[in-house]
Computed example of a mutant assay.
Amino acid sequence: MAIDPGVLLAGFGSGGGLLLIGQALLRPARPPLSVLRAPAVAPPESAPGWEMRVGGWLAPRLVRPRTRLLLRPPVEDLAILGRPVELWLTQKIALGVIGLAAPAVFAAAAAALGLRMPFVFPTVLALATGVVMFWYPDWVVRDAAADARLEFRRGVAIYIGWVAQARSAAGGPAESLERAAAVGHGWALAVITRALVRARYGARTPWEALADLGRIYHVSQLVDLADIMSTAGAGASIYDTLLSKQQALLAAELAAEKAAANERSERMDFPVVALLVCFVILLGYPLLANIR
């Protein structure tokens, strides 16, 4: 029995709508960068809800060494975003189940309309959507963490210059780091300030805290800053060294921005070329059709 294309299109639309509804319900709102905390995975008590309860029950049973290939938590990226592993695990499992169930709903709706389709079609579609939805939380976390690292790198470039100025004003190494972090109001400086405060009241040095931040956010210049400040004595002149680090970081950011702009420009060439090809075909078709 032939399937009406209109009914088939409606079924695909209903299945896609179901997937979008599930995604909207399960994906939490992305927190603004201004409220990102210092890198530390949020404890379960800080994010109550059924997602945390389900994730807390699933985590010790599913996240094991033999299942690390499929359920390897991106701990470092989740820590940057302040999202607990339990919430990530619940989203991953729930979206995968929704992806598997959506084609079954489509097949049931088609059967209710009296349409029969091969069993292979909904099965293959269920596997494809299930795999895509299962990996979707990983892609979201990875992209969000990449954006956070980029913003943090830009904040560090400004912070290094302020540290150089505070140090040139005869401030001590630890004092210069804290004074420079207290100047601005960006989320990157808030992360640095919180790390320095924790180091001051803890058993760590401020340069150790900065070095950890640099490794987590993949900012080597922050690690270099920590090394420089750890060896700076009371009168050591490090102003020029810090400025050179700032210039190197700003130059790297500028080069990355130019590369991204060039890539976007190259992507815009394809629609123009496709439009020109279509235009040539449109003009040449009458001539070719009249050739005998």
Score class of each variant (00 low, 15 high):
V140F: 06
R153S: 14
E151F: 05
A111D: 05
D138N: 14
G114V: 04
L150V: 06
V97G: 10
P103W: 01
E151C: 08
P118L: 09
A112F: 02
A107P: 08
A112V: 03
R116Q: 15
D138C: 03
V131W: 05
A126K: 07
A146S: 14
A102P: 05
D147F: 02
T129N: 13
A111N: 11
A112P: 02
F121C: 07
E151H: 14
I98A: 07
P137V: 00
V140C: 03
A109L: 11
L115E: 10
V132Y: 06
F106I: 08
M117G: 09
P103A: 06
F106D: 00
V120S: 14
V132T: 03
L125W: 13
P118M: 12
V124D: 01
L127W: 10
R149N: 09
F121D: 08
A109H: 04
F152P: 02
W135H: 14
E151S: 14
A104S: 11
I98M: 07
L125A: 15
F152C: 01
M133L: 15
P103E: 04
Y136F: 15
L125Y: 10
F121A: 14
L113V: 09
F134V: 00
F106W: 09
L127Q: 10
F134A: 04
E151M: 12
M133H: 05
F121S: 08
A126C: 08
D138F: 12
F119E: 08
M117L: 15
A145P: 11
A126T: 07
A128H: 05
P118A: 14
F134C: 01
A111T: 11
W135G: 11
A146P: 03
A144T: 10
A145T: 03
Y136D: 12
A145I: 06
A102Q: 03
R149T: 11
A102R: 02
P103G: 07
Y136Q: 15
V132P: 01
A146V: 09
W139D: 13
A104N: 09
F106V: 08
G99L: 06
A111Q: 12
